[in-house]
Amino acid sequence: MSSTLMINFEDFLRRLVGVSCAGALVAVISVCSSSMAMAEPLAPTATVDRLHSALLEAMKDADALGFEGRKGKLAPVITESFDLAFICKVILGRRWDELSRDEHAQMIDTFTRLTVTTYAARFDGFSGESFRIVEEKPMNRGRELVRTELIRPADEPVHLDYVMHRTKGQWRIVNVVAEGVSDLSLKRADYGSVIKRDGFETLMQKLEAQIDDLKNGA
């Protein structure tokens, strides 16, 4: 009698443990999958799409928004879409390591303002342009290339290729290649030449002057 009771109790315990284990397992799986779903980044093409949509909106409402309005609209999208800190590091190459933390922050801040100002100044009107994503290709070291076209009604399309990398759970742009010309490599050569001849402070002054020129010209 007692042994039967014991078996029943053991069985009960086993079932209880089994159920709770299974329950825990289900709970763990559901937590994992929901957190995985949350961590799953937008596809590289989605980042590019979002940038292109913001640019088109800024172009279409260019006059109503004005230069400052376009800047305000584009700034959050540009800082989200581009890995600007990484871009600054690549542009300055070996010199990056020789600079202080404050100088790193200054470079990133200035370069971010220059990038936003440049986009706001250049995309200042609309004449029927549209963007088209041509294809996505894997590159070395887990990077992705998103090939796109800026289609212009009265002119040949412009080929714009975006090199993307995944960082902090998000696909971000690290280089724009227009008609085969890499923005990153051009800036690396151009900024490198200034910093080598005249130093970091002069580079910062020249970038600030460029921001002012773009503002005044807009």
Binding site: M139, R141, H159, D161, G180, V181, A189
Partner: peptide
């Protein structure tokens, strides 16, 4: 410097008829 590097890259793109190899863009 800007003109030199931009021209050299454009030229390379012409040589490959607009399809320069991807690796060339990946110099990080």
């Amino acid at each position: 410097i800007f003109q030199r590097d931009a021209w050299l890259q454009r030229r390379r793109n012409h040589i490959f008829d607009g399809n320069a190899p991807l690796e060339e863009l990946d110099f990080f």
